[in-house]
Simulated scan of single mutants.
Amino acid sequence: MSTIAEFSIPIAEFALSETLERQPDMVFEVDRVVAHDTTHVVPFVRATQGDFGELTEILEADTSVEEVELLANVEGESYYRMVWINRAEIIGYMVAEQGATVHEAIASDDEWHLRVFFPERRGLSATNDYARENGFTLDVTAIYGLGDLEEAQHNLTKQQYDTLTTAVERGYYDIPRGTNAKELANELDISHQALSERFRRATKNLVKNSLLVDEDEED
């Protein structure tokens, strides 16, 4: 049975930990991952927030990055193609050995948050075993059947879903507001930047899956 799993990995155990130590406000989002083996992972990465002035040089100095190519700078966002080595092997194992697809991978607030599609449920179990045997802390936060995720959560991650529902419950969308962004971020134990990113991604997913459901047919 196909399975979608959401889990987190401490940044210290994964790729770009050195970059994020020097640029703690930066948020990295992986758009696509290619892996032909466990040792070399090729992600296409979008960087937001933080200081972009020396980002490319910082990435080049990161020991988890073998290659880095700046593809574009667009309205306060930078797009990169990278080759990850060393600590990215858990992703290489999922993609190359288990045929998994990384739907989302976001680094913020000392963790990488991932949503991964496994063609077979046993691929998730094998990944858990691999993580344990190789010293990775893999914290699985949610497991969905493919239909459950699409129908029940409009393609939202658990973090996005929890953020939106908490915001509604606390009156963030009320007029006047019952809470502000700083208070909401404190309650969720995340930074203001991470809260803003979650709102933006969640809103985009809701619009695409609820209001643009016929987009492909119209095209």
Results as ranks from 00 to 15, higher is better:
Ile9Ser: 08
Ile9Ala: 04
Pro10Thr: 11
Pro10Met: 08
Pro10Cys: 04
Ile11Cys: 04
Ile11Glu: 15
Ala12Glu: 14
Ala12Pro: 09
Ala12Cys: 04
Glu13Asn: 09
Phe14Arg: 01
Ala15Gln: 05
Leu16Gln: 08
Ser17Ala: 11
Ser17Met: 12
Glu18Trp: 13
Glu18Ile: 11
Glu18Arg: 11
Glu18Leu: 07
Thr19Lys: 10
Glu21Gly: 09
Arg22Gln: 10
Arg22Pro: 00
Gln23Cys: 12
Pro24Asp: 11
Asp25Pro: 01
Asp25His: 01
Met26Ala: 12
Val27Arg: 02
Phe28Cys: 06
Glu29Tyr: 15
Val30Lys: 03
Asp31Trp: 15
Arg32Ala: 05
Arg32Leu: 05
Arg32Gln: 13
Arg32Tyr: 12
Val33Leu: 02
Val34Ser: 04
Ala35Ser: 07
Ala35Gln: 04
His36Ile: 04
Thr38Leu: 02
Thr38Phe: 00
Thr39Tyr: 05
Thr39Glu: 15
Thr39Cys: 09
Thr39Phe: 09
His40Phe: 11
Val41Gly: 09
Val42Asn: 10
Val42Cys: 07
Pro43Lys: 08
Phe44Arg: 08
Phe44Pro: 01
Val45Ser: 03
Val45Lys: 05
Val45Arg: 07
Val45Gly: 00
Ala47Val: 00
Ala47Cys: 00
Thr48Leu: 03
Thr48Val: 15
Thr48Arg: 06
Thr48Gly: 03
Thr48Tyr: 05
Gln49Met: 08
Gln49Leu: 02
Gly50Phe: 00
Gly50Pro: 07
Gly50Ser: 12
Asp51Lys: 01
Phe52Gln: 04
Gly53Asn: 05
Gly53Thr: 14
Glu54Met: 09
Glu54Arg: 14
Glu54Leu: 11
Leu55Gly: 08
Thr56Pro: 13
Glu57Ser: 04
Glu57Thr: 02
Ile58Gln: 07
Leu59Lys: 06
Glu60Cys: 11
Ala61Lys: 14
Ala61His: 15
Ala61Asp: 15
Ala61Asn: 15
Asp62Cys: 10
Asp62Gly: 11
Asp62Ala: 12
